[in-house]
Simulated scan of single mutants.
Amino acid sequence: MAMDLVDALASLVRVTETGSFSAVARERDVSKAAVARQISYLEQHFGVRLLHRTTRKLSLTDDGQMLLGLAKPVLQGIETIEAALGQQSASPVGLVRVGLMVAASHFIAPRLPDLLATHPGLKVELVVSDRFGDMIEDRLDLAMRVGEITDTSVIARRVGIAARVAVAAPSYIARHGQPANPQELGRHTCIVHDVGPDSDTWTFAGPHGVQDVRVSGAILANDTVAVHLAARTGYGIAFLPLVQVVDDLRKGELVRVLSDHPAPGVPFSLVYSSRRHLAPRTRLVMDFVIEQVRQMRTTLSASSEEVII
């Protein structure tokens, strides 16, 4: 097996500084012969003689002197790199790229300043999209995903169950009242998130099982942000991820309707690549997100599994 070139160069520097193979062997807790083999490896690798050896002392040849002068700045550069990366691996500093769905970004973005205020060396880049891509190609350190995780190239940490809720502005409720059950949505104005066929069919669970209800309204949008904004104006009832509207519910800017008929949920996880070391900065962001979800669950008095997205 090829000997480590960098380690051999470091041994050469120390041999010339101490003037002794034995001293370097003691420093490195290896045999004198092992240090000698490293110097021989360098001579074979570069095809030159590096040392004059006598019974009394060691001295560098001209080629050895040239290699020593070139090796020192290389070794110093490696030490600088190791120090910088070691600092990042030991503390939560540097950039974390996080993949989020649009709805989740509404929940995470307003909360990030609190995290960054206590970790000034940390940077977080939110990569927002409802289309799931490849984490490596997208250079993501961490990502939110819904559904069962079947990709063996990632490690998933289950957080809970993603929930959707029917919501309306208080002004709409004041004018039209609340539906008592999902079937009554047919008499209400609804705002449809258009994602393809059957977008106007909303699914709820209740005492009698799962119910599919067809809704209608004059506003449709292929973006949850537009649906959200239209609901806040008081136009009608929207069916949105809880994570997107939780702050509006807390502030009373939106009201949850049909709370006795929750929508069926899907698993929600945080994932990261199994081909990467999980840096402290990435773990910090992951733990932060999980804690925000826990706090939301506590505030809403939800069950241990009913969570967001």
Rank of each mutant, 00 (worst) to 15 (best):
V210P: 01
D200C: 02
A226R: 11
I191D: 12
S216K: 10
G209K: 13
H208F: 14
I237A: 10
S216L: 02
V210Q: 15
V227M: 10
H228R: 11
T201V: 14
A221C: 06
G217S: 02
D223K: 03
T203Q: 08
T201A: 02
V215Y: 02
V213P: 01
G236L: 09
G206D: 14
L220Y: 03
H208L: 14
L229R: 11
D223M: 02
V210Y: 08
G234Y: 12
I237W: 10
V213S: 01
H228W: 14
G236Q: 09
H193R: 09
V225H: 14
G217A: 04
V215F: 03
V213Q: 05
A226K: 06
A226F: 07
D198E: 15
V195I: 09
W202K: 02
V192R: 06
V227W: 09
D194E: 14
P207I: 04
A230K: 07
G217E: 05
V215H: 02
V227D: 08
A218I: 08
S199H: 05
G196W: 08
V227E: 09
D212C: 04
G206V: 07
D212Q: 13
D194V: 01
T233N: 00
H208A: 15
A230F: 01
A231I: 05
P207S: 15
H208C: 08
G236N: 10
V227R: 02
A205F: 01
F204A: 09
A231N: 05
G209S: 15
V192D: 03
I237Y: 04
A205M: 13
G217F: 05
A221F: 03
R232N: 00
H193L: 14
D198C: 03
S216F: 04
V227P: 11
G209Q: 12
S199I: 00
V225A: 15
R214Q: 14
I219A: 01
N222T: 05
A231E: 04
A205I: 00
A230G: 02
V195S: 06
A226C: 04
L220H: 13
H193F: 06
I237R: 11
H228M: 10
G206A: 14
N222G: 15
A231M: 07
R232A: 02
A226N: 07
P207W: 06
S216N: 13
A205K: 11
L229C: 04
A221D: 15
I219K: 00
T233R: 05
F204E: 08
G206K: 12
G209Y: 15
V227S: 12
G236W: 14
G236P: 07
Q211R: 15
G236E: 09
V210C: 03
Y235G: 01
A218N: 10
T201Y: 02
H228Q: 06
V192C: 03
D194I: 01
R214E: 12
G234S: 07
T224N: 13
P207Q: 12
A218D: 13
F204K: 07
W202T: 01
G234W: 14
D198N: 15
D212H: 13
V195Q: 09
T203N: 04
R232H: 01
T201W: 04
V215A: 03
Q211N: 13
A221S: 15
N222A: 09
D200W: 06
A231C: 14
A226M: 09
